[in-house]
């Protein structure tokens, strides 16, 4: 039998290592972005599909024709950096997955029982969701943002949210909790990819409508086309919404199990509801002529803001039955 305290310290060590690794990924991705946006016309758009490196993309690369060969070297370097960033991100993911497993074994329960652990597992979900999208769509431009969010989550985890390994207070000791939180975090990871897609869609869309400018190449031009971004935005939300719905319903079952009522308008429940309703509004807007795209995007961002508030605002500022989650 391995000593639990040793496993717990190992878990912490892995998290610190992962932070360093993610920081490298962040810098690498940032380097790629810089190469693609610094000099006019030399900067080819992101092409990479999947960690293996660039593959031809079916879509037009950018509104401006690319100049041929002389700039190939910069493009190659950007591609190389991008692929490297993705590989480093995969290493980071492997580290935090291991850290999560070690923590789970040390605590002898599912390792999502307090805010520190939510942030850790959230970082896993976010990275995994990003890599899953990257395997299918050319979204490496998300990398720098996703890795930035992961760094933020892990940074908060080891500083303000840190909690040593421990057993749970009795009311949290329920398999419905395991299911409920796992679904909420998975949904949240995919919503986060959706939020990044939404933000970048708005940037690209706005730039497209302004038309090409002279001088420095803009960040927006290096992004995937607004069609691709809109598709990823919509796909992420369509995927995450049923998962989030399931999380809310599983939470209701758990509440019925422990308090005798399945819905009590506790602040946590209320904000889960607000999140759900705003994302439902987003899905409707995507099906409505005149609202699709830009206007719908605002509802998606609203839903994400409500989601984030539920995690940070409600846990830290509003007390409710759920606040035993412990900070």
């Amino acid at each position: 039998m391995i000593d639990p305290t040793m496993l717990a310290s190992l878990s912490n060590l892995l998290i610190y290592t992962a932070i360093a690794v993610y920081a490298v990924a962040f810098l690498t991705y940032a380097g790629e972005t810089a190469l693609r946006t610094t000099r006019r016309s030399t900067a080819p758009a992101y092409l990479g599909v999947g960690p293996g490196g660039p593959e031809p993309s079916p879509e037009p690369l950018s509104s401006e024709p690319l100049l041929p060969d002389p700039h190939d070297r910069i493009r190659q370097r950007a591609d190389w950096l991008g692929a490297a960033g993705t590989n480093v991100t995969i290493v980071g993911l492997a580290l935090i997955v291991t850290a999560t497993v070690a923590r789970g074994i040390a605590a002898q329960r599912a390792p999502w029982g307090n805010m520190f652990e939510f942030a850790l597992v959230g970082a896993v979900a976010l990275t995994a969701a990003y890599l899953a999208f990257l395997a299918r769509r050319p979204v490496r431009a998300f990398g720098v943002w996703i890795v930035g969010l992961v760094l933020l989550a892990l940074g908060m985890a080891v500083t303000v949210l840190y909690t040593p390994v421990d057993a749970l207070v009795p009311v949290l000791n329920s398999y419905w909790l395991v299911i409920h939180v796992a679904a909420a975090i998975t949904g949240g990871g995919i919503f986060s990819v959706g939020a990044v897609a939404t933000g970048l869609f708005l940037v690209r869309d706005r730039a497209d409508r302004r038309g090409p400018t002279s001088g420095r190449r803009r960040y927006a031009d290096a992004l995937p086309t607004s069609t691709t971004l809109a598709q990823v935005m919509h796909a992420a939300h369509m995927l995450a919404f049923p998962i989030w719905t399931f999380a809310v319903l599983a939470g209701a079952v758990w509440a019925e199990n422990s308090w005798g009522r399945y819905w009590g308008w506790d602040p946590k429940e209320t904000w889960a509801f607000i999140t759900w309703v705003l994302y439902a509004a987003y899905l409707h807007a995507e099906s409505t002529a005149g609202w699709r795209g830009r206007r719908a995007a605002l509802f998606a961002l609203g839903g994400y803001a409500a989601f984030l508030f539920n995690f940070f605002g409600v846990n830290l500022w509003i007390s409710g039955l759920h606040s035993y989650a412990g900070v």
Binding site: P267, T270, I274, V277, A281, H284, S287, W291, F299
Partner: peptide, 23 residues
């Protein structure tokens, strides 16, 4: 659908004060 979107937004906003004020 536009009505649906507006009413959904209103529902979300209406739920907010109950989480901030004691109930």
């Amino acid at each position: 659908m536009r009505t649906a979107i507006i009413l959904l937004t209103l529902l979300a906003l209406a739920a907010v004060p109950g989480s901030l004020l004691p109930q």
